[in-house]
Structures are given as C-alpha cells and as structure tokens.
Amino acid sequence: MEIRVRCGCGDSSCPEWAVVELQGAVQPQASFSGDIRGLHIGRLCSAPSPSSSKGGYTFTVGYHELAGTKVTLKKPLLVLRKKKLTGGAADQETPTAAEVELEVIGVIRHKILFKDRPKALISKPPTKEKAAVQPAAN
C-alpha cells in the first residue's frame, strides 16, 4: 500500500526533534492521583555533568538525576502527524486509508541516551536546615 507523506516545510528546514531514551520508566508517584498531563516531568540540561568529560546531558526527574549522552541515530526517524482529511465523512469511525494524511513535522537524527543508573538526590532535612540557619545567623 502506498502511504503518502507530505512535508510542509522545506528540504532543509525540517525541525529537528530529539528522542530521550531512558533505561527505565517515568511514572507518577504512587500517591499521586489525577491527570498526569501537563505535569512537569523534569529538567533536561545540556550542561555536561562534571563526571563525564564528553558533552553530556543531565536529566532530573523526581529525585533522580540521570546522566546521558547524545547519540546519532543510524537511521533518522520522521515525526509524523496523522491528519484526517475533512473531505470524507468526518464522523466516520474507521477512516479509510484515503482519508488519512500524514504530515511530517520533524526529523529525529539524534537521541539522548540515559542508560546509566540514576543518581539519587537525597533530600537531607538537616542540611537544608543548616542552610536555613546560616542566613539567620548572619
């Protein structure tokens, strides 16, 4: 079957996307209830961590800090968006192939791979307190 793919942008101006690959899963806290959409996952910094000499990324999720590297994919991936053509019946349950259009919205050439064991960021109440004490003392 033939799949038509349309690219709106030009030849070279496709927006670059990136894949974040994790060894593990990002999941909500056990106690958390509610919609997970729109939640702040974590912080991804391109600043290399002091431990790794190469250009690395740090990703902080919850109380874990992950260190990763940027890896070039062997085969670049396309990011597609499925569009339903409005020409057909809009309320049809199963759209046929002709009614679906795929649009390229990005190219993925790199991925950021976090494969190492995460570092735990342990919150120490005494230390925080101490930090709080110091300004008070001064």
Binding site: L22, Q23, G24, A25, V26, P28, G42, H64, R117
Partner: peptide, 10 residues
C-alpha cells in the same frame, strides 16, 4: 512538587 519519578529498570 515532583509528581513524576523515574523508575530505573536495571
């Protein structure tokens, strides 16, 4: 404040 945590699959 951080509802999402990372679970490492080792």
């Amino acid at each position: 404040s951080r509802p999402l945590i990372f679970k490492y699959n080792e």
